[in-house]
Amino acid sequence: MPSEGGLLDRFVDWLPTTLFFKRAASWILVPYWAHKTPVKPLPGGPHPSFEHGDNVQCMMNLIMPLKVKSPIGRAEAALAIAQNKDAIYAGLNNVGTVHFARFVIVGDNICMFSVYDGDFTNYIRDFIATIGSVFNAVVALVEDGEDVTPCEKNVDAFIQWIHERDLYQVPDTATDFLRDQEALNGDTAMSGNHDDLTLLPRKLVLQLRANPNVSLGNGYRAYPGFSAAQVRERLELGW
């Protein structure tokens, strides 16, 4: 808390802002906390909701580490997407609930970012039914991908595998984040005194240690949510 106290108080308040303190906290304090209170990674994808507006234009942020971590591996991933471009468009057309999908290579990860309508499992299952071969071609290049391919014969396991690689969407408010954490642990009590929201909450630090890649928020829309088919219909593009 802000203090108007003496020299010692001001010193203590100043200490966490120093680079030395931040490094020491990262190397010593955070591992110690993590050891004392293990934190499970929070699940990825949109927060479950019954509200109609929350169930259109949902985000998927998939980060998949490539098996071959080199320019060769990255080039293989780029080719896998390029060679399947037509199938991807055909899939978008037949599934009908996707606004857009992007593939991005970041470091040695192939990432798929998409905006879709409705239930996540239905979205992935419909894609498996439409262009499962594309998923198989891409996932073959990804660590542990062989566990769930061919996706057509491992439907539920494949959907779960994708879900596990979909980034956790950190709520915009720290209190919502803490509720997520408590729900994961089946903890119905209110957060304890480690969660002063004016500081970096310990649970947030530990979650970001367990779950280093996250999405901040669930996307900021410039207009209310519409389904892809509603947009197509209003623009008279056919749906």
Binding site: H52, V56, D117, G118, D119, S227, Q230, E233, W239
Partner: peptide, 18 residues
């Protein structure tokens, strides 16, 4: 669940229902 969630509750199957 697919029927309940996307069709009965959200009306995703037709933009006039969504």
């Amino acid at each position: 669940e697919a029927m309940s969630c996307d069709w009965l509750n959200l009306g995703l199957q037709d933009p006039r229902l969504t």
